[in-house]
Design a protein around this nucleic acid. Structure first.
Lengths: 224, 224
DNA sequence: GTTCGCAAGCTTGTCAACAATCTTGTAAAT
DNA sequence: ATTTACAAGATTGTTGACAAGCTTGCGAAC
């Protein structure tokens, strides 16, 4: 499945555009872990010089999305279970922090739309198995929380962490029972936000991530 | 003050070495915020080609240590108070997580050396105003905790966060009363670790970071 | 005295060719 | 049949030169 729109790939300021295009392909699953990324081929495809591709690969390496060794093609990073768990352990903390800050920074009424979303449309998405819409709305929820939390470094860090595990974590949605449980857990989170109870929202969001981790552990052979 | 040893700067595998050398200069305070980093000058100084320097600057940009704009020299990132607070907010969470994981992963007896360190030598360093030794030992404390926590991503993230504020945070040590209070707070943290009480160690470590933040706020005009 | 415009020089951005290294395929030896 | 050695091809690493874009300083106009 491809959550991220990859129709528009290249624009004007080319380095950032190349980085973004490759990032989307990797996170969206179009490029699977272990895939070799050859500079010349990518340069031709994107219509840019090899230097751009090299710079982009260096940037992606810094973000942990590709591995590079001297004189060898860059490859899409392959995560093992321990790596995924390490990242989820951090995400548990930081996503929790994020919803708490968001709750504290905005009046409770401003979260009503999330309550409506998770009580109405999201339930239907879960019933119908409409994974794409579900994931899209979850993404909006996260993005709105990040904005409300008003901590740009936190935003950046969460972005890096989610990118690294996007492949795997998005696919947990399709596991039996996961989407229903996810909706239920997030309903509790947004309810706490709507009450203005930041501490409780944090606790519930952390529980939500732990629940995700349990699914990853249980279905690791399918996911990795 | 220069905490980090910068005597050995360049070795064989040059890109990483250049990145590391520049990182040390920036974090150690040798290059102050706002300083222009000109590619050709750095290339000559390090005896490498300009491409290396460009790659290194790109990597440092990804880590948030330098800002770059098209056709303009890279400059060492200048942090404002809000930026420092955002980073300290994350560090509060992650350093707390780090000591909790460390405590949970090792038998309590293994932390005895830290109790001894903070009850003995560190008290003397505080009394004598021996900032370098104090900061060096704190660094060892953090490094040992990271190793015991056994989460490489956490280690990496904390590294990035600390790098960005190293200049400023290290200098808080010299503020009146800060070093004594720091020793006192960390004594409580390591005592909790020695008791095997991870949750309490986490709480105390977070309190320690919050205390640091209070000093930054109070002396912001001196520090920024 | 101040401001604006212009030109020279400096700095970064880009490219193409070449060198160093790895990979793959073939063939010979065991 | 398997393994090893070697050569040809493919891929990444490096360099130097050139183009594009800022910066600075000078001088003229007001």
């Amino acid at each position: 499945m491809q959550i991220i729109d990859s129709s528009v790939e290249i624009e004007h300021s080319s380095l950032d555009a190349v980085i973004e295009a490759l990032r989307r392909r990797i996170c969206g699953g179009a490029l699977k872990p272990g895939t070799r990324l050859q500079e010349f081929a990518l340069a031709e495809e994107f219509g840019v010089s090899r230097v751009r591709i090299r710079d982009a690969l260096l940037a992606l390496q810094q973000r942990g999305l590709v591995d590079r060794q001297k004189n060898r093609s860059a490859v899409v990073t392959r995560l093992d279970l321990k790596g995924v768990f390490e990242i989820l352990e951090l995400r548990e903390n930081l996503e929790g922090l994020c919803v708490r800050l968001a709750t504290e920074n905005r009046p409770p009424e401003s979260w009503q739309y999330l309550v409506d979303l998770f009580e109405g449309p999201m339930v239907r998405y879960a019933e119908d198995g409409n994974f794409e819409s579900y994931l899209g709305e979850v993404e909006r929820f996260r993005s709105d929380c990040n904005a409300a939390a008003a901590n740009s470094i936190l935003d950046e860090m969460l972005g890096i962490l989610r990118d690294r595990t996007r492949n795997i974590v998005d696919r947990t949605t399709m596991l039996p029972g996961r989407i229903q449980q996810g909706v239920k857990e997030l309903q509790l989170v947004v309810a706490a936000m709507r009450r203005g109870d930041g501490a409780e929202a944090e606790r519930l969001r952390r529980e939500n991530i732990r629940s995700q981790r349990a699914f990853v552990q249980r279905y690791q052979h399918f996911l990795l």
